[in-house]
Design a protein around this nucleic acid. Sequence first.
RNA 1: GGGCGCGUAGCUCAGCGGGAGAGCACUCGGCUUACACCCGAGCGGUCGCAGGUUCGAACCCUGCCGCGCCCA
Length: 877
Amino acid sequence: MTETLPSRTSDLPAKWIPGEVEAGLYQRWVDRGYFEADPASGKPPFCIVIPPPNVTGSLHLGHAMDHTLIDILTRRRRMQGYDALWLPGMDHAGIATQNVVERQLAVDGKTRHDFGRELFVDKVWDWKRESGGAILGQMRRLGDGVDWTRERFTLDEGLSRAVQTIFKRLFDDDLIHRAERIINWCPRCHTALSDIEVDHHEDEGELVSIRYGDGDDAVVVATTRVETMLGDTGVAVHPDDERYAHLVGREIELPIVGRMIPVVADEHVDPSFGTGAVKVTPAHDPNDFEIGRRHDLPMPSIFNEAAVVMNSGTRFDGMDRFVAREAVREQLRAEGRIVAEKRPYLHAVGHCSRCDTVVEPRLSLQWFVKVTPLARAAGDAVRTGRTTIHPKELEKRFFDWVENMHDWTISRQLWWGHRIPVWYGPDGEVVCVGPDDEPPTGAGWHQDEDVLDTWFSSGLWPISTLGWPEQTADLQRYYPTSVLVTGYDILFFWVVRMMMFGLYAMDGRPPFEHVFLHGLIRDQFGKKMSKSRGNTIDPLALIDDYGADALRFTIARGSNPGADMSLSTEWVAGSRNFTTKLWNAVRFALGSGASPDLPVPPADRLTDADRWILGRLREVREQTDALLEDFQFAKATEALYHFTWDELCDWYIELAKPQLAEPELAEGTRAVLGHALDALLRLLHPIIPFVTEALWTGLTGGESVVITPWPVDAGAPADAAATARVEALQRLITELRRFRTEQGLPDRRSVAGRLVGLDDAGLAGHEPAIRFLTRLDAPSDGFAPTATVEVGLPGNGSVHVELDLSGAIDVAAERARLGRDLTAAQKELDQAEKKLGNPKFTQKAPAHVVDGIRARREAALADIERVTARLETLPSS
RNA sequence: GGGCGCGUAGCUCAGCGGGAGAGCACUCGGCUUACACCCGAGCGGUCGCAGGUUCGAACCCUGCCGCGCCCA
């Protein structure tokens, strides 16, 4: 190594310590504006909007997965010459954020009502400024290539204007209306919730069977919510149920309350379930509400907003629902009304997704979006292929969902959020006010007190962040966005709403061309991560310990379409090892004088190893392109991993070492190595941006790999002959190493040997490489071989190697080794002969398959012959 | 109850009609001037079970068992 190294190599430290470098690299990217989109650029646009994280949230592995995959897509498109925009931001998370601030107030024994609406909202903004949005800083740590100049927040002025605009339009189109219905109510948050904000899980409760009425009029009903009987206004049976035919139309007495309630016949009662009779509490159960409507039953509410019994006209008024449940049950028992009881009784119960309180169905006046026509349009967009869902298997779930979607409850009894733009007049007027309208003034006019569901604004995200309702340059250029990336568990939260609103607001143009749904991250045993299980992993801790690249690489490598992935610190450590491997490979290349600036010589002046690695590089590049276009992150990452470690490092670099020592080969080797690493670093950059940036700038002296073109013609067409010779070479070297290992030869001990038959095997020029990689010295004057190894090569050739081990070989070990080879060859032969002996196989199977089996038989026969002969020459032990 | 998906090496997962694979773990040998976050070699599987289709099944079909998710 007499050449002067290029000066730029001096910038490459001996070791890659991500924690010391990543933040600086990221800041440099941002400072230079690499991530800023430019609508005037003349390049084709590519746009992804972030599924907006919650302003109260911090980065968890689910985000890390979203962001890694999005960043891979965007960075690659940017390198491919697109005007790539990844637009960041957050949503205001109505309930969650209000909860955070209310908890702070509660420390001083205060509630939001002590401050009043305006002051309280100011306090929330204060909190947002001081503590909100931690996730934005964490995104920088991950390396997210987002355009910070376009960052948005759902409560920004522009986005709020979008909310008001669409509300007004939907209102005018009769797609938003106000109605008294049963909704999901959180008695702790004191607000309505939509269906998707309710999580159902199994709870221990009780199932109590109660006898209503007496004598011939007696009916037994069962319930898990005994206390609701205080609000019963009927009993329902199926019209065809003869057991109760005599009762229909009559009234029976409701225990405790003493009210007479009718028995009604309703088709929706399942006569085979329980006793076939159900109690009807129209104000506190969605099914009962429907029955009540059909039969015109009274609908008294017996709970206040905290789910405390009220207005029941009984002594239970003032009791919490769970206290009342037991108290009512005990009184029923005392009155001899309880027929049966199951306790504990496991059943699914709805919980508030924000605070886990048991949700109470509640009859109340709320605003709803009539989703049927909007959801149908969303379904059509996918059906007609204007939006493609990946993986395709999830389409069915999407269709099922949009076809069965219930009206969406959008009013929330909160203060933090977009206030509903509806004013009520003194004479019952209802006026919806658009963003440019003046709200009505005067005595008796007041605005609706409620705010909108956060997802009402998140649903507008793909259009509002681009400037809608204004026809901005960004909107015209980047809408529809290219891809939406999110977890399949979130499909219904954002994707459906974004689809509905985008189609509605943008004249039937859906908000994204592709929806890519990835799986969930689980722990190393495939278990879902959860705080209660204690198996969560903080992505920031992983970044601290192993670097952002290692986390990203792990995620990319595990992301198979439609499947969840497992992750543990060991997996991430493995990825860190990969970045280190890459680092060292480039260090070796630089130390050898490799450079992409050196011209790669024409094929006829390249070695087999050169041609082989250039062919493999082209194949891997093509593979990577095809896989990434198809969102197959795991396979693309795996292909690059395998190429880097198992081919480039384990073989090409090793073969390059003897080449570099040959003056006539050295320059070409430096060129090939420089060329291959340059391309490889670019291919890897979207996945592991930090280490590739450091290495690529070190290798090439270029400004930044971020803005460097994607390698489109790196490598060379595969050279089958060169590849075959390299594979034979690998086989020969591996077999010789195996012999050495099994003979117990220490790695560092050189052995003299003679290679016989290299010419016939086409490996004549490879003797230096073989000797270098197997520590085989040239035979000297006193060469006296004591052992022979014969290596069968692909293509049925073989090479003899005579070795001077300076002593007797370990015959037992050699017999064992050959015995294993013989067994394997015999098995191979048996399989092949069995097939070939079957006339149906030779007649029906395609010719190339039959030929393949014949070739395998020949190879096995040759192996057996060779190994047997060798075994016979061994002294008996 | 309805729908979807999964059961392949100790663990996590690829493979989805013609030679059972990877990473990690494990065993043995090595601090060989790119790398011990490494190198070399190796061990490890009636591909959940039972039928069927086929010349041929981990792969296609049917049933069963076990697990997970979504919706009621």
